[in-house]
């Protein structure tokens, strides 16, 4: 990769919009190019300053109160306000978690951030591809054998169509340098990627959020799974619970 083409990729890399292969190629160039490192450092410095909390206007309390009063009362219940407060608290905690993640990354935990980014990038690349699945099937008896011979171990495949998450198919993708099976589910207009990992990778956060996409990491049979989707938090959690409770899959062959 020469400097000219790398300059074109630099903002994409910086914004986490490059796929893992291109990211690695870019990083290889970065190692040997002081000018590109300098350009990247400038972007990072600018971002740090723009993300200073002082640059972000917070909604005035009066506005918040005005809108809260205009909130539709769907099911008037005594605890509606408590639930709402709890959901705000949860949102705040999630926000703090995400901020913490960002902070961690800043602190130099690049390996962890790299792995998380790989998972998100892989999902995004699949979304951008002509087809997000290599084997299209809603039948787990088709999907599971397809993996055999392509990866070391065929993952357990379950369908959650009854719960609103039909199986869409599967593909093989890269996480770090490992080839891993990915099960693809649908939920309404959303695509859900389940990366089946041999073991919970050290340092991977249990959950993360990036640019509107969520990540959940959970134990799955004898393996671990990383779920990536743009569903909202509640749906993502519901799906993660389903997956975790899936338990031992029925014999699939």
């Amino acid at each position: 990769m020469n400097c000219e083409s790398s300059r074109r990729l630099l903002p994409l890399y910086f914004d986490g919009e490059l796929d893992p292969a291109d990211s690695r190629a870019f990083e290889a160039h970065l190692d040997g190019c002081a000018a590109c490192r300098q350009a990247l450092a400038e972007l990072e410095a600018l971002r740090a300053r723009l993300r200073d909390p002082a640059m972000r206007y917070a909604a005035p309390a009066a506005l918040r109160g005005r809108l809260a009063a205009a909130m539709p009362a769907a099911r008037p219940r005594a605890r509606a306000w408590a639930a709402l407060a709890a959901s705000w608290l949860a949102a705040a905690l999630l926000g703090a978690g995400a901020a913490g993640l960002w902070h961690d990354r800043q602190q130099g935990l690049r390996a962890q951030a790299g792995l998380t980014r790989d998972l998100f990038a892989s999902h995004w690349r699949a979304l951008a591809a002509a087809s997000p699945v290599d084997v299209v099937s809603s039948d787990r008896h088709t999907v599971k054998p397809w993996f055999a011979g392509k990866v070391a171990e065929s993952p357990p495949v379950r369908d959650f169509a009854a719960q609103g998450f039909p199986l869409a198919g599967g593909r093989i993708d890269y996480v770090g340098s490992a080839r891993v099976p990915v099960l693809v589910y649908r939920h309404g207009g959303h695509l859900i990627d389940v990366f089946v990992l041999a073991a919970p990778p050290a340092g991977l956060p249990r959950q993360a959020r990036m640019q509107g996409y969520g990540l959940r990491v959970l134990a799955l049979d004898h393996a671990a799974a990383a779920v990536v989707s743009d569903m909202d938090e509640a749906e993502l959690d519901r799906f993660a619970r389903l997956l975790a409770q899936g338990g031992e899959p029925p014999p699939s062959r």
């Binding site: 972000r56 206007y57 917070a58 909604a59 005035p60 506005l63 918040r64 809108l67 809260a68 909130m71 709402l84 959901s87 705000w88 949102a91 909202d232």
Partner: peptide, 11 residues
């Protein structure tokens, strides 16, 4: 609820 959660972003 979504709008309230993202009120700071909106503002």
């Amino acid at each position: 609820e979504l709008a309230m959660r993202q009120l700071d972003a909106a503002y």
